[in-house]
Each structure stands twice: as structure tokens, then as C-alpha cells.
């Protein structure tokens, strides 16, 4: 399990980066990168995302 970013919905604002307690998310110029090894599935990024692009997904 890890946070996943739906690139169709995401407008790469980087808001999720500022709320990740494990520093697992990085904002690249036009995409969000999640380090699945660091991610602890806390779901804060998914709760925060203004457009609902972040979610916790099984089997990733």
C-alpha cells in the first residue's frame, strides 16, 4: 500500500507535500512523486488534496 496520485485530476500544486509527515512526496514541475518505501499510508495527503487526486491504494 502507498499513496497514489491520479495524474488526470492532479494540478500539481504541491499541497500534499507540506502535509506529509514522512517527507515521502516530492513536487516535480508537472507531477507529484510518491516514494512508496517512505509512505506509511497515513492518508493525510488524500484528506488534504483540494481536488481529490491523492488516495491510498492497495497492492502498489
Amino acid at each position: 500500500m502507498a499513496a497514489v496520485c491520479d495524474r488526470e485530476r492532479c494540478i500539481h500544486c504541491g499541497g500534499c507535500v507540506g502535509v506529509c509527515p514522512k517527507d515521502a512526496i516530492t513536487l516535480r514541475e508537472t507531477r507529484i512523486e510518491v516514494d512508496s518505501k517512505r509512505c506509511i499510508n497515513c492518508g493525510l495527503c488524500a484528506k488534504f488534496c483540494p481536488v481529490g487526486a491523492m488516495r491510498i491504494e492497495d497492492g502498489v
Binding site: G14, G15, V17, G18, V19, P50
Partner: peptide, 26 residues
């Protein structure tokens, strides 16, 4: 480097935002 500051974190400064004090803007 903005709200997603990595520089602060790299230097060990707590720049983490908590949900109640972090506005979701659209």
C-alpha cells in the same frame, strides 16, 4: 521554497503542516 519546503526539512527544521492549520485551496 514555499509551502512544500524541502530545504527546511533537509536542515532538520520542522516545517510540517497540520491539517487544521493548513488550508486546502482551489
Amino acid at each position: 521554497d514555499g509551502v512544500e519546503s524541502k530545504i527546511g526539512r533537509m536542515a532538520g527544521i520542522k516545517t510540517l503542516n497540520v491539517l487544521k492549520d493548513y488550508i486546502s485551496g482551489f
